[in-house]
Amino acid sequence: MTAPTLPTFFHVVAWGLSLVALAVAARRLPWFKLRGDGEAQHVLFGSVLVLCLLRFAVFDRIPGLHLHFIGAGVVSLMFGSGFALWALGLASLVAALSPAGVWLGLAPDFIACGLLPVLCMQLARREVERRLPPNPFVYVFVIAFFGAGLAVLLSQLLKAAVTAWLVSGAARDAVEGYLASAPLMMFGEAFLSGGALALMVAYRPQWLASFDDGRYLRRPD
């Protein structure tokens, strides 16, 4: 069985969505936070490097099945959605130029592994902050842990749905692989994100653009 391929029209649409998302994000990037701050620059560079390395731990023995951790939850909460989109886009580009490869092409891979997870994290964070009390436990366990798990679940479901649509019968193994691995990928991504954010909240809260001391550490009235 050969790996499924997207029709040209859908590649064009994927590229259009990707470029628009990156262009909108580029206009809102808070570069001022990096100017003159060597620590912030090193943290951003190191985070991008880790995202790229995550792409090399990929399972793709079954044609059409492309499994790897994303890291979208961590970078979204550390740097905000703008920097997160560009960092994940760079990770997809590095994977596309390496033996690790990407899912169905560079633009579709960015949508499934970058744009969709980042949007999910932003919506999850907004809803949690609106509905739940502000404290570090909610931030780490609900936003970072469950938010990252939900993000990778949506990525898995998108890949499964597109794979099933492209090759109905022959892609059964890949589709079943996405669905069967979803709980494991969710837990792994959630553990990665929640563990990293818990350490940063405790030792380096200044690395987290989404962690407001006045909100999460204030004493109850």
Rank of each mutant, 00 (worst) to 15 (best):
F191Q: 08
F146T: 11
L158E: 07
D173W: 11
L184V: 15
G169Y: 06
E127R: 14
I70R: 01
Q156H: 15
A72P: 03
L119V: 13
T163K: 02
G105L: 08
L179S: 05
F79S: 04
R126Y: 12
R130V: 08
M200L: 15
V140D: 00
I143Y: 00
W165A: 15
Q156C: 14
W86S: 01
G82Y: 05
G194E: 12
L65K: 10
A151R: 09
R126F: 10
P133N: 01
A84T: 08
E189H: 06
P99T: 05
V94L: 12
V162L: 13
L132G: 05
F141K: 03
G177C: 02
E127I: 13
L179P: 03
A202W: 14
A198H: 12
Y139I: 07
V162N: 00
A196D: 03
G195C: 11
A190Y: 08
L65V: 11
L65W: 09
P134N: 08
S168Y: 13
L97K: 11
L197A: 03
P133W: 00
A72F: 06
G73T: 00
F69P: 03
F145D: 08
A87D: 08
M121R: 04
M121A: 03
C120S: 14
A170Y: 08
T163A: 12
P108F: 10
G147F: 04
L119K: 07
G177W: 07
L154H: 06
G195F: 12
L106G: 03
L166E: 02
S181K: 05
V167P: 02
A174F: 11
